[in-house]
């Protein structure tokens, strides 16, 4: 997963080095002779990906231009007559192409609250990723030095990762319970008024973000810790001799050394958080009144509660995917500019 930055193993294969401009027809042949086993090895995955991802993706994009719902999906309506014979006639309300209507409806706010959900999603994603990264980095720096009890700390800090996300979501919802939850009990104990967490969108979103921070820090910590251990010690020793302070060593050795890992985990973390389903779905449940839905949960509810609206779900899907694709392209371009290519 975090191997995006791995450079292609150049020394490994004897293959594909010499693309001499030979006679035309033999290129394919030679390429086949040289690479057939590599292709054979990736074939199962490619087949599975095309059947399960590429086809549904194409189909999903297509559906977003139709008005297909659970109610109008039949092309024919068949009625049984008394004699038992079946007569079928075309469904006058059958689904059909509607062009960009779905996109217009969604983006103009006629259906659902796209812009509000997008706003919440951005707060959610940025809030979570920033805290994931900074807390993860802080803990990783602390764990990356010799000290007593390091193994114990590490195991305890990774523990939240071992808990299935839906269980953590339930656990935090339990602690934020407005009547008897832990946080309100503590607030009452110190003489403050209990907070009705889920009746204001800000506190409601806060509970979800706190839950997700708790969930996501271990991954960042582990990835960054692994990255730190590949930084050569000599660099630290040299800096030490030159009299660099711990802070200077952190800024000019640790951070640059972590750059490629950081870029990868931030990109992945952003994508994952953007599409994080269970935490919002279970912790805030969109309360109050759907104001804390993020795009993924909001579109799920809009499309799958009541009559299932397949075309609407696909429209949202295409929009979410486009946002993430645009983000990744810009992200990569930014990295390229700074001389990093993968």
């Amino acid at each position: 997963m975090s191997t995006v930055t791995a450079t292609p193993p150049t020394t490994t294969s004897p293959a594909s080095r010499s693309h001499r401009p030979a006679k035309r027809p033999s290129w394919l042949r030679r390429s086949w002779d040289r690479h057939w086993y590599a292709w054979a090895m990736v074939a199962p995955v490619v087949v599975v990906l095309s059947v399960l991802i590429i086809y549904p993706l194409v189909r999903g994009v297509f559906l977003s231009f139709t008005n297909l719902t659970e109610a109008n999906q039949l092309a024919e309506i068949c009625t049984k007559s008394i004699t038992g014979s079946e007569s079928c006639k075309a469904n006058p309300e059958a689904w059909h192409m509607v062009g960009f209507d779905n996109y217009v409806d969604v983006l103009s706010g006629k259906v659902g609250q796209f812009w509000q959900w997008l706003g919440v999603t951005l707060i959610w994603t940025i809030g979570c990723v920033v805290f994931h990264y900074t807390i993860g980095l802080g803990l990783a720096v602390m764990l990356n030095r010799p000290m007593w009890g390091r193994g114990v700390y590490r195991v305890l800090l990774i523990l939240p990762w071992a808990v299935p996300a839906f269980v953590s979501a339930f656990a935090w919802k339990f602690m934020f319970n407005e009547k008897f939850g832990l946080f309100n009990a503590l607030l009452t104990k110190v003489g403050l008024d209990p907070v009705e967490w889920f009746s204001d969108w800000k506190t409601s979103l806060l509970t979800a973000i706190l839950t997700n921070i708790w969930l996501g820090v271990p991954f960042m910590m582990v990835a960054l810790l692994g990255g730190m251990q590949t930084i050569p010690t000599e660099q630290y020793e040299a800096a030490e001799i030159d009299g660099a302070s711990p802070w200077q060593r952190f800024v000019s050795i640790t951070l640059p050394g972590l750059r490629s890992v950081s870029m990868t985990v931030i990109l992945l973390g952003t994508i994952w958080t953007f599409n994080m389903f269970p935490v919002i779905f279970l912790v805030t449940q969109g309360q109050p009144a759907g104001q804390t839905e993020i795009l993924v949960t909001g579109s799920f509810r809009a499309a799958f509660e009541g009559i299932r609206n397949y075309s609407l779900a696909s429209t949202y899907g295409v929009l979410i995917l486009s946002i993430l694709l645009v983000f990744s392209v810009f992200y990569r371009r930014m990295l390229r500019k700074q001389g990093e290519v993968w």
Partner: peptide
């Protein structure tokens, strides 16, 4: 990498069908 970005919403309907 791109498949990591696929939101549930886009695949769920075609797969459902």
């Amino acid at each position: 990498l791109v498949t990591q970005m696929f939101p549930v919403a886009i695949l769920i309907v075609p797969i459902y069908q």
